[in-house]
């Protein structure tokens, strides 16, 4: 189950979208999320769908992977559609079944809202599919840069995010090890009454915390030994680079925005 869920997973590649500056991707997605709510005609929805689909295709990620990966979300989208279909009572009745009457208004609104929902999810998952978490972190650090002036700890925040990313797999492995060790001492994580199962978490959590603290302490020591003293005077190896490709992307997106306002009714 968890392996088929693609939201938040990175798929390595070298497509146009992969190569875009993560800041470009974040900025475009941010504004895309805003303008989706301005669409109100078939043409304007068509335009946005075309843009999203075009982006998805240019990631070169297989379509069936995308569709399967969004499976858990399909349920929500269909549910949204049905909700509107049943509840909205505007326009004419176009179909009736037993005591239910379905209105054209409901159909249109249901389609529009679930399309919006779908577009939002598709576009945001394109970000995580084509951008490594560390690139996103870098982009956030860079985009929040101006906040340094008001003493907002931008660098520290970014470092925290990147260290968390680094240690997630390590802590997952550790969790597995400890739960096996405790299972060998007779702890039952899977069966039994809920109360017992909640109690069974203690022998797992305490060692995990103890080890996380120990790791943090040792990591801090190692970082200090390697000359870490905060963001001041630090240089960076990873560099974000806005290039010609990004300018094209912005240009295309501005065209989409203009197109959207022309095609709105």
């Amino acid at each position: 189950m968890s392996s088929s869920m693609i939201i938040g997973q990175y798929v390595p590649g070298n497509s146009v979208i992969h190569r875009l500056d993560p800041r470009t991707k974040i900025a475009i997605i941010f504004f895309f999320v805003l303008i989706v709510f301005f669409a109100n005609s078939v043409m304007s929805y068509g335009l946005l769908t075309l843009f999203a689909a075009g982006s998805a295709i240019s990631t070169k990620i297989p379509a069936n992977y995308l569709i399967k990966g969004l499976l858990p979300v399909w349920f929500l989208i269909v549910f949204t559609f049905l909700l509107h279909l049943f509840v909205t009572k505007e326009g004419e009745v176009f179909f009736s079944f037993l005591s239910f009457e379905f209105y054209t208004g409901g159909l249109i609104q249901g389609l529009a809202i679930s399309l919006r929902f779908f577009l939002l999810i598709l576009v945001t998952s394109l970000l995580t599919l084509t951008t490594t978490p560390i690139e996103i972190t870098d982009a956030i650090e860079s985009m929040l840069g101006p906040l340094k002036k008001i003493r907002f700890p931008v660098h520290e925040l970014a470092l925290m995010m990147s260290i968390s990313l680094r240690f997630i797999p390590t802590l997952m492995q550790e969790t597995e090890k400890i739960s096996k060790a405790q299972a060998s001492r007779g702890v039952d994580f899977r069966t039994g009454p809920v109360k017992e199962r909640i109690k069974a978490v203690v022998p797992l959590l305490v060692p995990l915390f103890v080890s996380a603290f120990k790791r943090a302490e040792e990591l801090a020591m190692a970082m200090e030994a390697r000359g870490y003293q905060g963001g001041e005077g630090r240089t960076k190896l990873r560099e974000l680079h806005t290039g010609r490709l990004d300018i094209y992307a912005y240009f295309l997106f501005v065209l989409v925005i203009i197109g959207l306002f022309i095609t709105r009714s």
């Binding site: 560390i134 990147s162 990313l165 390590t170 790791r215």
Partner: peptide, 15 residues
């Protein structure tokens, strides 16, 4: 420069 005992707890970078 120093190299410590635990290989995991001194690896700072994501790659």
């Amino acid at each position: 420069g120093m190299v410590f005992q635990n290989p995991d707890n001194q690896f700072v970078g994501t790659t």
